Computed example of a mutant assay.
Amino acid sequence: MAQGSENVIMEGGAAVPRDLLHDRCRAIAEVAGVPSSWAIVALLSTQAPTGFSWKNARGLSFAHCATTDHIGQRIHELIEKHSSDREHIRDERIRPLRVIGVVECVIRRGNKVHRSHLVPNSSDNGYRLSKATIEALIGAPHDFEDYLTGLKNGLHSPSDPEDDARGSCEASEHMMILERVIAEHLPKFHAGFDLIWIDSDGGSLSAGGRQNDLAECGFSLDRGDAIPDIVLFDPTTRRMRFVEAIASGGEPDTIKHQQLLALCARWNTTYDGTVCAYKSRKKALARRSRMTQAARLSHAWSVSDPDIIDAAVSAWPGA
């Protein structure tokens, strides 16, 4: 969006105020459960070099293929402070928008952009707002309300079979890793620690979590907390450890690490490290070689090599 412009779209001779557009972005973000609306706003602007863009007939430019890095750069410009790293932006800000159909994945082939699933290790991956989202943002008030209702009821969720199959595969791998962590990893590496929380429902506070065990120790989780897959507690020393099962991403970055430290402080416990659990050690080493924050802030364990722990660069518990 053009900076300093009070109105951003001309529709039927009437201007749509910038504040109204931002209000609509915030309403969508609230339904999606993302921390803020800035990832949506970033896709409304081509000030950052997004590779491809297109201009709506009513005057507003949209990113037609914006990478995670481009979105992160735009967020940084919009809020005038450092945004979190690309892993956090992808997993915490973009992925929830993908799940409910606000944002769709695209891939750049030459000078064309096609809807696609994410291609591993490709620099041609990108994101754009779905057609329904764009129409809602620039539409009449009743159209926007209908769109929000559709989001809440899952009517805009992606229906691409390849995306559905991919999501199912990732969920199955995630559950397999959790099962092997409980059966093999915990007894070998966490003697004296009690398993007081396991979240098998992707970050929700529903039936998957062991809320009773957590509560019996005097702890609680709120919906706004950083919710790990597994929480371990040593009642003798009041130390706390966390485990994250990594199927497609989600290694703790600096922001997640600080959230876990804050959680321990709130519970009056000592943070004693985070372990990222992978299906294979080869995958773990490859991902961590590209993500310096993950390698620095968490240890790595894999189903394929259950006797090996690759330690975090900084000393456990890490800071």
Rank of each mutant, 00 (worst) to 15 (best):
Arg26Glu: 10
Thr46Lys: 13
His22Pro: 01
Gly33Ala: 11
Arg74His: 09
Ser45Gly: 07
Pro49Glu: 02
Ala57Leu: 14
Asp85Ser: 12
Glu87Tyr: 02
Thr46Val: 13
Pro49Phe: 01
Phe62Trp: 11
Arg108Glu: 14
Leu20Cys: 06
Thr68Asp: 05
Cys105Phe: 12
Glu77Asp: 11
Ser36Gln: 04
Glu77Asn: 06
Leu44Cys: 15
Asp19Lys: 13
Cys25His: 06
Arg18Glu: 09
Glu104Tyr: 04
Trp54Asp: 12
Arg98Gly: 03
Ala63Gly: 07
Arg74Asp: 04
Ser53Asp: 12
Glu104Gln: 15
His22Glu: 13
His70Ala: 05
Ala39Leu: 05
Lys81Glu: 09
Arg93Gly: 05
Phe62Gly: 04
Lys55Asn: 14
Leu43Gln: 03
Leu97Val: 03
Gly59Cys: 07
Leu97Asp: 04
His114Lys: 15
Ile75Cys: 00
Pro96Trp: 07
His22Lys: 11
Leu60Gln: 03
Val103Gln: 07
Gly51Asn: 03
Arg86Cys: 09
Thr68Gly: 03
Cys105Leu: 07
Glu104Phe: 09
Ala66Ile: 00
Val99Trp: 11
Ser37His: 08
Leu20Phe: 04
Ile28Met: 05
His88Ser: 06
His114Ala: 15
Val102Arg: 01
Leu21Ile: 15
Arg90Ser: 06
Thr46Gln: 01
Glu80Tyr: 11
His64Thr: 09
Ala57Glu: 13
Val99Cys: 11
